[in-house]
């Protein structure tokens, strides 16, 4: 049988979960960022899957927008990471704890 919609959704959920786990567990800022990208991608997959299975263009258009946003976010996020690195001399997010009250 052909891949069902539910398969795609399940896969997407798994990838998303992996991303979430990575965000929480990883200490390196860049690694955290990459896990966030993974989460975004899994959501993209969901959108495209729905668009394909319901014959609706909106899903893919939305994915397009999401990708553009993700690109912008990558730029800014990495800028922040660089600035963080300049300040703290370390990419460990546990070291960026100035917000501690």
């Amino acid at each position: 049988m052909t891949p069902q919609l539910s398969w795609y959704l399940a896969l997407s959920a798994v990838m998303f979960t992996i991303g979430v786990a990575g965000v929480i567990l990883k200490r390196n800022a860049i690694s955290m960022f990459m896990c966030i990208e993974l989460m975004l991608n899994s959501v993209n997959l969901t959108f495209v899957a729905f668009s394909s299975f319901f014959n609706n263009l909106n899903g893919q258009l939305f994915v397009f927008i999401v990708m553009a946003v993700a690109a912008a976010e990558a730029a800014v996020g990495l800028g922040i990471i660089i600035a963080l690195f300049r300040n703290r001399e370390s990419l460990d997010v546990d070291d960026a704890n100035l917000l501690k009250l």
């Binding site: 979430v20 965000v23 929480i24 567990l25 997010v93 546990d94 704890n97 917000l99 501690k100 009250l101």
Partner: peptide
Amino acid sequence: QLQPGFVRSYAAIIL
């Protein structure tokens, strides 16, 4: 007291 300053705990709370 809710703000320990660790980014990852923030992520956990978001989750």
